[in-house]
Simulated scan of single mutants.
Amino acid sequence: MLKSQRLKENLNSLMKEQKLAVLATYHDEETYTNLVGFAASNDLRSIYFVTPVATRKYSYLTGSGKASMMIDNRTNTANDFKDAMAVNANGKVVVAEKTDELKKLYIEKHPYLQDFLESPSSALIRLDVDRYIIASSFQNVMELDMT
């Protein structure tokens, strides 16, 4: 199996297993992070999350049009130094239309967030991933270009 294909399979597994990501935004020379529930498209090109529109997070996202997300599988034990995988997804963000297909993708992973997603005061955000930076086995770092 090709190395890039195995890398994509490992990345896809991580995206399906993990429910939370750390979202990083930037505004006026200040970084800002939040935990978000996310769902990734099957082709790994897009990551979706929901946020209320009346928040700093939403303002920073729509103002800069860029974001970064970190998804990992750490267990907070010493084994993480050899077993954990952490992924940084960088790209552009847009407000996505809440289509039936996208709502289904998100709700299948987060059924307890259906009201949050469907609220008129919440926006579905799509991160169009330019690249993934994948760290595993503590110091093994690889990049996957999605453009």
Score class of each variant (00 low, 15 high):
S121E: 15
M1V: 10
V53P: 02
A21R: 04
T25I: 06
R126S: 07
S137D: 13
A24R: 02
D145H: 07
I125E: 04
F38A: 07
A67C: 13
E30V: 11
E101W: 04
F138W: 12
T147V: 06
A67R: 08
A39G: 00
K8L: 10
E29C: 12
H110D: 11
K82E: 13
P52R: 15
D145P: 00
T51E: 07
T147Q: 04
Q5W: 03
M142C: 06
V93E: 02
V93S: 00
Y32Q: 14
F81C: 06
R56P: 06
L23D: 00
N10K: 09
S13Y: 11
A86R: 07
A54C: 08
R6G: 01
V36Y: 04
M142Y: 10
L11H: 04
Q18C: 00
L44D: 09
S46E: 15
I71C: 02
A39F: 01
T62M: 13
F138N: 14
F138E: 09
K82M: 12
T55V: 07
V53T: 15
T33I: 15
L23R: 00
A40H: 05
S46Y: 14
F116W: 05
T147H: 07
L144K: 03
I133L: 12
R126Y: 03
N140H: 13
Y60K: 11
T77A: 07
K66L: 14
L113F: 12
T75K: 15
I125M: 03
M142I: 07
K103A: 03
D28S: 14
L124C: 02
R131T: 08
A54I: 06
L7K: 09
N76V: 10
R126H: 09
T33P: 08
S4N: 09
L113R: 00
G37F: 14
M69C: 00
S119V: 02
Q114C: 02
V22F: 03
V95Y: 01
E143A: 08
P111M: 13
S68E: 04
M146V: 05
Q139L: 08
R56W: 11
Y106F: 15
A54Y: 06
I47F: 05
L7H: 07
M85C: 11
E29K: 13
T62R: 01
K98D: 06
S121Y: 14
R126L: 05
V50K: 00
M69H: 00
Y106V: 03
A21L: 12
I134F: 02
I71H: 01
E17C: 11
A67S: 10
F138S: 10
L20F: 11
T75G: 15
M15R: 00
R56T: 15
N12R: 15
S41A: 13
Y58V: 03
L105W: 06
V93W: 01
Y26W: 12
A40N: 05
Y112W: 13
Y112P: 04
A84E: 08
H110I: 07
N12V: 09
P52E: 15
D43W: 03
A78F: 15
E118W: 08
K19T: 14
S68N: 05
A40S: 15
N140E: 11
S121R: 12
